[in-house]
Structure formats: structure tokens, C-alpha cells
């Protein structure tokens, strides 16, 4: 009996080994296939970007040429970029965009932080309703808001001003900022605050010594995100400003009668700050967007 069982063991193990080898091969194949798909998608995203970047960072002759090349094969030059930046309204547009985005960032963060704290720390009657309305507001179309707000701003005499546009952008970013900051606060266990209070802190001290240092990176990320949203926003900016256009509004306005060099450089120039900022806050991406699903 014992001999028989030994033989059987050997037999089975060989079969298992073959199966194992087959599985491994298949796994390797799967892995290679996944890589291929991933790289294809990455190319689909990066390819056009690289082309646009090449167009923005070359001479205007290279932009006009056909068929067009990409960067190592065409001369590198800041000529196109310089041409774009020297075009009418671009420098003021950049300044306006930065002002609007900065005000939006500050206002939105200042207003959203207490609300985010309240929704993550207190269980109060009306909390769910508040969160739900924030979500509803988050999903509302900008288009719907921009026109009436423009009319209101005209009647208040604060139309066509970077400040009123910042007010609008704050209204647009506020819901997202509240949700994101709420999730940042929620990631700090309340027990930490309690521990600080047991060890001699007042609630305010506990907030300052424990909660604040822990949430600051997350809030900074959310603020950057707010900045990017405002920097990118074009519809409301086009409706609410006439003389004091932001960069996207200016580019949109000039789009139909401008050269390709202008358009390519403009598109690239608008993208770059966002890409840099997004890189810094990539760790928080899921905090930002994952929130929408909850």
C-alpha cells in the first residue's frame, strides 16, 4: 500500500508541474498583454501631447511646414511661444487668470475648510442633507449658472471684473473642495484629537497641534486642485468677462482668427501649469475624484 501511494505521488506531482508551467507561461503572456495594452493607452494619451509640445517649442516655419515633424527632428526654439506670449491680451490674460485662480483658491479653501471639518467630525441633524445638496451642486452644469450670474453681476455693477469671476469660480469649486477637505479630515482619526485633549489640550489646541499639521498637506493639495480648476475654466470666464479676459477666455476669443502657431502655443501654454500641479498632487488624485463616488 505504501509503495503504491508513493508512485501515485510522483505521478501527480509531474502533472502538477506541467500544469504549473502552463499556468506560469499563461501568466507571463497575460502580463505581457497587459503591458502592451497599458503602453498603447499611454501612447494614445501622450502622443498628441508630445506633438502639441513639439509645435509649441519650435520655429514658426516648422509650424507652417507640411508634413510636420516632432521635436528631435525639427529645430527647438522658443520662437512660437514668444510669438504667442507677445500677442495682444495674452500677458494681461495670464495675470487675470492667476488673480482669479488665486482668489478662488483662497476663498474656496477658507469657506470649505470649516464645512469639510463639520461634515467629517460632527454627526448633526441635517448632515446627510447638506452632503447630498453639495453633491447635487457639484453635478450641476456650469452652463446653467454662468448666464444668470452674469445678469446678476451686471445689475450689481460688478460685471467684467476678475473679482466677480473669482466669486463665480468659488461657487463652482466650493462643493468639490468641501468634499475633498471633508475626506482629508475624515482620514485623521478622532481618537488623536481625544488623546490630545486627555493630555492637556483645549479643543482648539488639539486642533492646532494635532489636526492642523496632519491635514495641511491634503488641504494644500485640494487648494492646488482648486487653482487648476479655475485656471482651466473657460465657459463662465468667457461669459462673465469682456475687457478683463482670463487666458482661456482670451484664447477662445482669438481662436477663429489666429494662426496655428498661436493656437498650438496657446493650447500648450494652458496645459503646462496644470500638468505640473497635477504631478505634485498625484498622490491625492483619488481623494479628489474618488470623493465623487461616495
Amino acid at each position: 500500500m505504501s509503495v503504491q501511494s508513493e508512485a501515485m505521488t510522483v505521478q501527480v506531482s509531474e502533472e502538477v508541474l506541467a500544469l504549473h508551467r502552463r499556468m506560469q507561461r499563461r501568466r507571463k503572456l497575460n502580463r505581457g498583454f497587459t503591458y502592451l495594452v497599458g503602453i498603447l493607452i499611454a501612447l494614445w494619451i501622450l502622443g498628441p501631447l508630445y506633438f502639441l509640445g513639439s509645435m509649441a517649442l519650435t520655429t514658426q516655419e516648422a509650424v507652417r511646414a507640411y508634413p510636420k515633424g516632432v521635436l528631435p527632428f525639427i529645430p527647438f526654439s522658443l520662437d512660437t511661444m514668444r510669438f504667442f506670449l507677445n500677442s495682444a491680451g495674452i500677458v494681461p490674460g495670464v495675470i487675470n487668470s492667476v488673480i482669479v485662480a488665486a482668489i478662488t483658491l483662497v476663498l474656496s479653501t477658507l469657506i470649505a475648510a470649516p464645512a469639510g471639518y463639520a461634515t467629517s467630525r460632527f454627526l448633526f441633524p441635517g448632515r446627510d442633507f447638506f452632503r447630498l445638496s453639495i453633491l447635487a451642486v457639484r453635478a450641476f452644469p456650469i452652463v446653467v449658472l454662468a448666464v444668470p450670474l452674469a445678469v446678476v453681476f451686471i445689475s450689481l455693477g460688478i460685471y467684467d471684473s476678475v473679482y466677480s469671476l473669482a466669486l463665480m469660480h468659488t461657487a463652482l469649486t466650493l462643493p468639490t473642495t468641501i468634499l475633498v477637505i471633508g475626506s482629508v479630515f475624515a482620514s485623521i482619526p478622532y481618537e488623536l484629537e481625544e488623546a490630545a485633549m486627555v493630555f492637556g489640550c483645549t479643543p482648539v489646541q488639539a486642533f492646532r497641534h494635532i489636526v492642523l499639521p496632519l491635514v495641511l498637506p491634503g488641504i494644500a493639495a485640494s487648494a492646488i486642485f482648486t487653482f487648476v480648476m479655475s485656471w482651466n475654466e473657460v465657459f463662465a470666464a468667457s461669459i462673465l468677462t469682456v475687457q478683463n479676459r482670463t487666458l482661456p477666455a482670451q484664447v477662445l476669443f482669438a481662436l477663429s482668427n489666429s494662426s496655428e502657431a498661436y493656437q498650438f502655443a496657446g493650447g500648450f501654454f494652458m496645459m503646462v501649469p496644470s500638468l505640473i500641479f497635477m504631478f505634485f498632487i498625484r498622490r491625492y488624485l483619488f481623494n479628489m475624484w474618488g470623493q465623487i463616488t461616495k
Binding site: 493607452i41 499611454a42 494619451i45 501622450l46 498628441p48 501631447l49 502639441l52 487648476v228 485656471w231 482651466n232 475654466e233 473657460v234 482661456p248 484664447v251 477662445l252 481662436l255 493656437q263 498650438f264 496657446g266 493650447g267 500648450f268 494652458m270 496645459m271 496644470s274 500638468l275 500641479f277 497635477m278 498625484r282 488624485l285 475624484w289
Partner: peptide
């Protein structure tokens, strides 16, 4: 890389 388009404005994408 997959998340890059999240930060790009729709106008810039149009131009792209």
C-alpha cells in the same frame, strides 16, 4: 499618465 487629462482644460484639449 492615465490621469494627465484630468488636469487639462477642455479648450486646450480642443486645440490639441
Amino acid at each position: 499618465i492615465f490621469a494627465i487629462p484630468l488636469g487639462v482644460s477642455d479648450l486646450a484639449v480642443g486645440i490639441l
